[in-house]
Computed example of a mutant assay.
Amino acid sequence: MIKTLAGALTALALTALTAPPAGAEPRDPEALLTELRTLYRQTGAATEAFNETDERLRAQRAEVERLTERLADTRTDLAAARRLAGRLAAGQYRQGALTLPPALRLLLGEDPGQAMHDGTVAVRTAAAKTAEIDRLVANEERADELTTAAREALDTEETLAEERRSRRDEIHRRLDEVTALLAGLTPEETAELAARELAATDEAQRELLASGTLDDDDRPPSPAGQRALTWALAQLGKPYAWGAEGPAAFDCSGLTSQAWAHAGVTIPRTSQRQWNELPRVPLSELRPGDLVIYREDAGHVALYAGDAQVVHAPRPGTEVTLAPLASDPVRGAVRPG
Rank of each mutant, 00 (worst) to 15 (best):
R164G: 10
L146V: 08
A232E: 05
P239T: 00
D155Y: 03
L208A: 02
R151L: 04
G246W: 05
E158D: 10
R164W: 13
E158T: 13
E140H: 11
L146T: 09
A131V: 05
A161T: 09
L236R: 05
S166Y: 13
T156A: 12
T125P: 04
T230S: 11
A200Q: 06
E152N: 14
P220L: 10
N139I: 12
D144K: 11
L214V: 07
T159C: 08
L136H: 02
E157L: 09
V178T: 08
A194D: 00
A183H: 14
A224Y: 11
N139A: 15
D202L: 12
R174S: 01
A200L: 05
L214Y: 10
T179E: 05
H172S: 05
A195S: 12
L182H: 06
L198H: 15
D202V: 12
A241F: 00
A183M: 13
Y240V: 11
L146Q: 15
A232S: 11
R165L: 09
D218Q: 12
T125K: 08
R142W: 13
R227Q: 05
L154S: 04
E245G: 12
R142E: 12
T190S: 04
W231T: 10
T156F: 11
A195K: 07
T148K: 15
A191L: 03
E157C: 10
T130E: 12
L236W: 03
N139D: 14
G225S: 09
G243S: 01
Y240R: 07
A228P: 03
Q226S: 02
A244N: 00
D176G: 04
V121E: 09
Q235W: 03
G184Q: 14
L233H: 12
I171K: 00
Q235A: 03
A234C: 10
R168Q: 04
A228W: 04
T148F: 15
L233G: 13
A180D: 14
P223W: 09
R151P: 07
L214C: 04
L233D: 14
A241M: 00
V123C: 06
A138E: 02
L175D: 02
S166Q: 08
T213E: 12
T179L: 08
D216Y: 10
T213M: 13
Q205F: 02
E197P: 00
A122E: 03
T213Y: 06
H172W: 04
A122H: 08
Q205T: 05
D155K: 09
L181V: 01
T213I: 06
L209C: 06
T130Y: 09
K238E: 01
L181A: 01
R196I: 09
L229D: 14
R167K: 07
E140Q: 13
